[in-house]
Design a binder for these strands. Sequence first.
DNA 1: CGTAAGATTTACT
DNA 2: GTAAATCTTACGA
Length: 220
Amino acid sequence: MRQIDLSAVATDVAPLLLGSVLVGTDGVAVRLVEVEAYRGAEDPGSHAYRGRTARNATMFGPPGRVYVYRHLGLHHCVNVVCSPAGTATAVLLRAGEVVAGQEVAWQRRRAAGVCRAERDLARGPARLAVVLGLTLAHDGAPMTIQHSPRDRPAPEASRMRAPEAGARPLELVPADQPVTMRTGPRVGVSGRAGTDAYPWRYWIDGDPHVSAFRAGPGTS
DNA sequence: CGTAAGATTTACT
DNA sequence: GTAAATCTTACGA
């Protein structure tokens, strides 16, 4: 099993997250198939490019926490904070496959809107946040990594978890097998930051749960 | 101080 | 395919 060091730069961490499983609230777990890296002060596409604000403060904190922000007043998106405190890089979780807690996941998605296909449950960053049950209330919450198999809770134990378990740290179980990765420009990012000059979108080749690509404005 | 644009999703024409 | 929903930040007057 590969070690994941979240104090590394987001572009180094992102490939390691592909194929890993993130356990969210109420037993819902998602295998990550698509992520994007954002590199703070070096990255015009990053929320942290122009310095610290109330919204992005979590990204400037220690690594291993989740940065959750609200987009267009409606949606939530989830990042994993990387790099040491003071350096604001992060990995945006864009899509995944629900591998546990399917009933809760479907319930949450139907409450938020229409969802017909299983592959659309967590296909897109805001949808991923919905199925995991993450909102602004979880901004800054710590995430723990299960680096040794004996630390991994029994599947039965996580299914029996009490509702207040949502307050406990999120868990990340690293991929036990390498995945076939592809890279390219990030989705919906405008200007030069959305071009091949910043190929910081990473996804598992051929996986149906990867979201559709959309070019940002001014990236032609 | 007012306006525009954004790491999106859904519903409607 | 296009519009609407509706919050935060950036930027120009």
